[in-house]
Simulated assay, not measured.
Amino acid sequence: MEKLEKMDMKINHLTSLVQSITGNRLSLPQMDVAEEEESGVFPLASIADLDMLEEKLAEKGFMQRMVNRLSLSGGPNMKKTVWRICFKVFTTDVARQLNWCGRGGKKGLGKTNFGALLISSAIRNPVLLSPTEAEAEKFVKDFLRLAPGRI
């Protein structure tokens, strides 16, 4: 019975992978002017850039396009997924000025649209069997906490 359950979970997982892959191939829209402008957003070079992006993320359509763009980073597990997204989004200097809660004179991401963007993008990875917000949040915190050690 346990083997059947495991097999069923694997089949469901593979089915979702196939559906996401075929869905992505069939519906690749042409980039319009707005999307071309969005492609130059990352990596964020300063906290001012982050603040400007935070304002834009209040618009639901823009937020969804950014989630779609960042979710393509993928990874075999949640840690790799989150770290790939964060390396794409932040320069090391910006990451050093951030943390999740906003303690120590740093800017906090936890209750911002930008924090929600990072979490939503990581959770959309179809390879992950059961992604959780808590797991994604943990790895974002780790990425930011370890930023001062990067060159």
Rank of each mutant, 00 (worst) to 15 (best):
41 V>A: 08
50 L>P: 02
29 P>C: 08
67 V>D: 00
43 P>Y: 10
71 S>A: 15
75 G>P: 05
87 F>R: 07
85 I>P: 05
81 T>C: 14
42 F>V: 04
66 M>P: 01
36 E>M: 15
81 T>W: 09
55 E>M: 08
71 S>C: 13
76 P>L: 09
74 G>E: 08
49 D>N: 10
75 G>H: 04
64 Q>K: 13
32 D>A: 06
71 S>F: 07
52 M>T: 10
45 A>L: 14
59 E>I: 11
63 M>C: 08
67 V>E: 00
56 K>P: 01
80 K>S: 13
84 R>H: 05
44 L>T: 09
32 D>K: 07
80 K>N: 07
64 Q>E: 13
77 N>F: 11
42 F>Y: 12
56 K>A: 10
65 R>E: 09
53 L>T: 02
83 W>I: 12
39 S>N: 04
31 M>K: 15
65 R>D: 09
58 A>W: 08
51 D>F: 11
44 L>D: 01
82 V>P: 06
56 K>F: 06
76 P>Y: 08
56 K>L: 15
77 N>T: 02
88 K>Y: 12
81 T>R: 03
82 V>E: 00
51 D>L: 14
51 D>M: 13
61 G>W: 08
69 R>Y: 14
86 C>L: 06
69 R>P: 02
77 N>C: 10
68 N>F: 11
74 G>D: 03
45 A>E: 14
66 M>A: 05
42 F>W: 02
88 K>S: 07
46 S>E: 04
45 A>W: 12
69 R>E: 14
44 L>Q: 00
72 L>I: 07
66 M>W: 11
75 G>M: 05
36 E>I: 07
83 W>C: 04
50 L>T: 13
34 A>F: 09
54 E>P: 01
68 N>E: 13
65 R>T: 10
88 K>Q: 04
36 E>L: 15
49 D>K: 06
68 N>M: 12
90 F>I: 15
63 M>Q: 03
48 A>C: 09
71 S>N: 06
30 Q>A: 15
63 M>R: 03
80 K>T: 15
35 E>D: 06
